[in-house]
Design a protein around this nucleic acid. Sequence first.
DNA 1: CGTATATGGTTACACGTGTTACGCGGATCC
DNA 2: GGATCCGCGTAACACGTGTAACCATATACG
Lengths: 336, 336
Amino acid sequence: MSAVLPPPRPTSADVARRAGVSRATVSHVLNGTDHPISEPTRRRVLAAARELQYAPNASARALRAGRSNTVLLPMPVSLGLPGQDTFIEHLDRELDKLGLALLIHGDRGASGVKGARSWAELRPAAVYLDAARGTRPAVELLHRAGVQAVLLSSVQAVPYAPTIPLDQAAVARVAAQYLVDRGHRRLACLVPGGGRAALAERRWAAVAEVARAAGASAERVDCELTEDGVASAVAHWHDPARRPEAVYAFNDEFALALIEALRRIRVGVPEDVAVIGSGNQPLGAILRPALTTVRFDVPALARVVATSIRRLLDGHALDAAAVKAVAAQLIVRESA
Amino acid sequence: MSAVLPPPRPTSADVARRAGVSRATVSHVLNGTDHPISEPTRRRVLAAARELQYAPNASARALRAGRSNTVLLPMPVSLGLPGQDTFIEHLDRELDKLGLALLIHGDRGASGVKGARSWAELRPAAVYLDAARGTRPAVELLHRAGVQAVLLSSVQAVPYAPTIPLDQAAVARVAAQYLVDRGHRRLACLVPGGGRAALAERRWAAVAEVARAAGASAERVDCELTEDGVASAVAHWHDPARRPEAVYAFNDEFALALIEALRRIRVGVPEDVAVIGSGNQPLGAILRPALTTVRFDVPALARVVATSIRRLLDGHALDAAAVKAVAAQLIVRESA
DNA sequence: CGTATATGGTTACACGTGTTACGCGGATCC
DNA sequence: GGATCCGCGTAACACGTGTAACCATATACG
């Protein structure tokens, strides 16, 4: 099977030749430099580029610039935002508008440094990751590689890198506040372990804080998303004295699983226990009782994050107010 | 805010200087060329590289080589495989073992050519996408850009590009066959429209074919994943004469939504209608009736796809048998 | 008229890598 | 002992960009 080399992609030199100008001129026109170029030649260049279907070579460009126009997002994405896939989709679109390309890359087992080395090879303009424990060495490695690491932090800005103060626990806070406002005084927070432990921890802290401020109690319940996992976690809730009045579940999936587990031990939702999730998944609106939930305004969030990254790359300070302005929205249905 | 330039990452020249050799020697050692290098210098180079934490610049390498060692996967991923996220995770790991890096990139509105142009800029070694209608111009554009486009096709290999003959409809086929084997003679297939229309079409075709071969009938039901969408799609099923005996739903979410809709019109699952999904989502095992479903052996699948891509890039023909050997697995629970 | 100034274009270099072709010393062969 | 070969290392080029420095021409100004 002799491999037939495909014809090479046209370069800016080809465009220049076709337009009858130098390569430098092509570059000036296509990149909109402040260097003055006459209108006629400008049009000739643009026409030539279009006819040849010219697309600049990202590698060469990145090499020359010292970095690419790429924002790297490690996966499995630990952002833990409700509606994660749509968030990524929106973020991609928004970054594109700002001249940046979103790339998602495996996190290589989250071992921090190992992954960071892979990312560094790509010389992205930014890496957008979660500020968890153990992030620091990775950030420093990236920093040495010349990338502006952009963190997604909880409440507090971290000292060693610029931070987008996106409050991942906001959904939990809004949910807990709603439960408290409805008069519930004994709260519980259902969270998973494993890879999402860091996020779970933060959400739990938010719930605990809201409860304390309102003079209510809060209990943390860890479980796996399996039949036995959920069932055993709530087994003793058949006893009214030993169960909470209201539960915030990590996401809608957990919430639905919880409701089913409660049904089996004859605990009614919302009469006996109120349940609220987060993420606004389709199933939540379909199953009964319809799930009360909290979600971010995903498009707005994506827009704010994108512009924040752009500002940071341009050397501006970021507008913390704009980030905080993206509120979590409550969707009240039947379950709470 | 004066941006402090970070110290530039060490280059192969730095390594060469430190080892007291030329840059060419460094390259030979680090890339394992067949060019002979004495053992002492080899060690010196390796030591220097390690001490400086040298990592080659991917852009420069890609520029020189004409392509990067990257496999691009457009998002939102139209692979439509059950268990998509874990598949991606596994694929990433497998490709890494073979010296390739998986990158996920927005598909820019799936407009085919527009997206393809973005991908082409990155000069990936391969683009792994779905062979749907309208894919051809994109493939040709990529081909001209020098990338080996690797398609994920249904039954048939497409003529204009190498194909990994992964049967996306296999889950549907296995599911339908199970339903037929259980004696059901009037089948239905619940599928979504919108972005997943192509995949839906293929799965529906598979169900129809299995039904025909078995002398059974099959009906296609299109609906959205909303309360009204599902409810109105099956509204007339309260009449036993007008409803199917068994339904294959596009995925577990649809299946669960369907079961709920049927419950509301007093149609029992599985007594009145058998329901089978695909994807093996956690909720399916938790809710009642527990969902019978079909899924791929995701790790095996990822391994086969990764090695296929590698073989293709190395100019070898791919091993169709290995791909087909990855079977869809049936998980029988209560709903069918 | 001589000189500063804007306008429009080009030349030339650097980014970091992989690799081909070459040089040099020493061993081998007749 | 000269021709030949082999082991080891290096010089030099090319990949496709972006841009600073430079040049030529036409125009404004005193």
